[in-house]
Simulated scan of single mutants.
Amino acid sequence: MGMAKLIGTVLGVGYIRPAPGTWGSLVALPWAWLLHILGGFPLLLLGIIAAFLKGWWATAQMTRGSEDHDPSEIVVDELVGQWIALLPISYAAWSMGINVLAMWPGWIAAFVLFRFFDILKPGPVGWADRRGDALGVMLDDVIAGVFAALGVLVLAGLYHGLLT
């Protein structure tokens, strides 16, 4: 397996059936935890940037000359989007000195919301997906991740503001 396939399929996770995108999002969770444990919010943010750039390159390599601009085995975009969805949790834990796993409801919310926006592709998520190129493959998940991160912030605000 070439480097582009290793990156694009996240070490082969994209070949797991059914629902490779969900598997890609799931495998992103322990890796986000590891990045957070090793370097906090700054390392997770750097990981997102690096994974986005490498994912964009890998997607372009894997789809070159193909009719299918977004084959299901490419899941590096899900990894990037899921990491973005987790940014509010990582930031809060890092800035307040809280164990990031103590925020487990936020992890669940980030996962569910990211999958929701990635699957339904509302508004700008769908626009990015319809670009039909490697950048669009990555951007639709970036935007879905931003939407999910905003949802995590709203839910945390509701929980901590209204319910406690």
Results as ranks from 00 to 15, higher is better:
G2F: 06
M3H: 05
A4H: 11
I7F: 05
G8F: 11
T9Y: 07
V10C: 14
V13A: 13
V13R: 06
G14W: 01
Y15T: 02
Y15W: 10
Y15I: 04
P18L: 07
P18W: 02
G21F: 12
G21P: 10
S25L: 09
S25D: 05
V27D: 06
V27H: 10
L29E: 00
P30I: 09
A32Q: 02
A32L: 14
W33H: 15
L34C: 02
H36L: 07
G39K: 01
G40P: 13
G40H: 10
G40C: 07
L43Q: 04
L43F: 04
L44V: 14
L44C: 03
L45W: 09
G47H: 01
A50Y: 05
F52R: 05
F52N: 04
K54T: 09
K54L: 13
W57K: 08
A60I: 06
A60T: 11
G65L: 08
E67S: 14
E67V: 14
D70C: 09
V75F: 11
V76W: 08
D77W: 15
D77E: 15
E78T: 04
V80I: 07
G81R: 14
G81Y: 15
G81V: 07
Q82F: 12
I84Q: 03
L86P: 07
P88A: 00
I89R: 10
I89T: 13
S90F: 07
S90H: 09
Y91Q: 04
A92E: 03
A92G: 04
A92R: 09
W94F: 08
W94G: 04
M96V: 01
M96A: 12
G97C: 06
I98F: 15
V100K: 09
L101H: 05
L101S: 13
A102Y: 13
W104P: 12
W104C: 09
A109H: 14
A110F: 10
A110Y: 08
F111H: 14
V112P: 01
L113I: 02
F116R: 05
F117N: 03
L120H: 15
P122C: 11
P124W: 12
P124T: 14
V125P: 08
A128C: 07
A128R: 08
A128S: 06
R131L: 12
D133M: 06
A134K: 11
M138D: 05
M138I: 05
L139Y: 05
D140V: 07
G145C: 06
G145V: 05
A148W: 15
A149L: 00
A149R: 03
L150N: 00
L153V: 06
L155M: 03
L155G: 00
L155A: 06
A156E: 03
A156M: 01
G157L: 02
Y159D: 02
H160C: 00
G161D: 00
L162Q: 02
T164Q: 07
